[in-house]
């Protein structure tokens, strides 16, 4: 298939990366390349410059900081899944990372790349929104509720770089995924968490505008953290993705089923 050619730039610092991006105009960052390269093969992106974030020190790794876990943007999915710190403090996040794609994809793909891409069927957006994480960029910090901005869109500025993601450690959390049988992406995935800031329920794979919270379920679970408490709470089928794989009604049904399973697993 091949990829049209481009200038390849491998900066050593965030500042240089951003300068290179702004100078090039028509540029893309590359992290794990597990989304960007397939997209470039399909000619859905043909940047004149590709700027590799792989040469910048300090962008990968997992750190425990007080009551939060900070994960570098270049941390591979496989390393999140295998990390003893993540498994101990937020097992739901390690579990989710281990369900992304397949081992080869998990060995290359990164958390920052997944979030910047904001695919409506990706898993990490459910973790970031469902755990109330903060996205740290080269210039500011963005709360999860402000970060996702519709299909494949985020509140990142054109050349802004995700540096790390900071997750508050919840009391408990669980992720339930109904994987698309061929692509392994989430047909629907639901993250439920209970922590200092309250209860969060976030669904991916389902919404026409990407990952979303379910406030009615959160309110019911805040009163009684049981699967029975959210029995009968539904999301509008008309707002769900409908395609050859599943209708909107089917996805809406799955949101309820997976949310109840997630709650049951930790209550």
């Amino acid at each position: 298939m091949g990829i049209p050619t481009f200038d390849y730039i491998r900066p050593k610092s965030l500042g240089d990366a951003r300068k290179a991006y702004d100078a090039a105009g028509d540029a893309r960052y590359i992290a794990g390349g597990q989304t960007l390269l397939p997209v470039m093969k399909q000619r859905l992106a043909q940047p004149a410059s590709v700027i590799d974030l792989g040469g910048i020190a300090g962008l990968s790794g997992i750190q425990v900081e007080g009551k939060s876990l900070t994960i570098g943007a270049m941390t591979r999915h496989a390393d999140v899944a295998a990390s003893p710190d993540v498994r101990r403090l937020i097992p739901a996040l390690a579990h989710l990372a281990g369900l992304i794609g397949d081992p080869q994809v998990r060995n290359r793909g990164t958390m920052g790349g997944s979030l910047a891409n904001n695919d409506p069927s990706a898993d990490y957006p459910a973790a970031v929104l469902g755990l109330g994480a903060i996205v740290l960029t080269d210039s500011r910090s963005i709360a999860a509720d402000e970060f996702f901005d519709g299909l494949f869109t985020t509140s990142l500025e054109e050349s802004e770089i995700i540096r790390a993601i900071s997750f508050p450690v919840p009391e408990r959390a669980h992720y339930e995924k109904f994987a698309h049988p061929a692509s392994r992406f989430a047909l629907v995935g639901v993250m439920v968490s209970k922590g200092a800031e309250g209860v969060r329920v976030a669904a991916t794979g389902a919404g026409q505008t990407g990952v979303f919270r379910v406030p009615e379920m959160e309110a019911a679970l805040a009163k009684s953290f049981t699967a029975a408490a959210i029995e009968g709470i539904t999301v509008p089928a008309d707002d769900m993705i409908a395609d050859m794989h599943a209708s909107g009604a089917y996805r809406a049904q799955l949101v309820g089923v997976l949310a109840r399973r997630a709650v049951a697993a930790i209550s």
Binding site: M1, G33, L37, K41, D52, P103, Q104, R108
Partner: peptide, 27 residues
């Protein structure tokens, strides 16, 4: 497949499996 799906191109990159159709040589 050349579309990151089939794994026929799997090699070990620094000891880990990777789909070599989805890695730039320069990376």
């Amino acid at each position: 497949c050349d579309t990151s799906q089939c794994g026929a191109c799997t090699v070990h990159l620094d000891g880990r499996s990777a789909k070599s159709c989805t890695v730039l040589a320069v990376q």
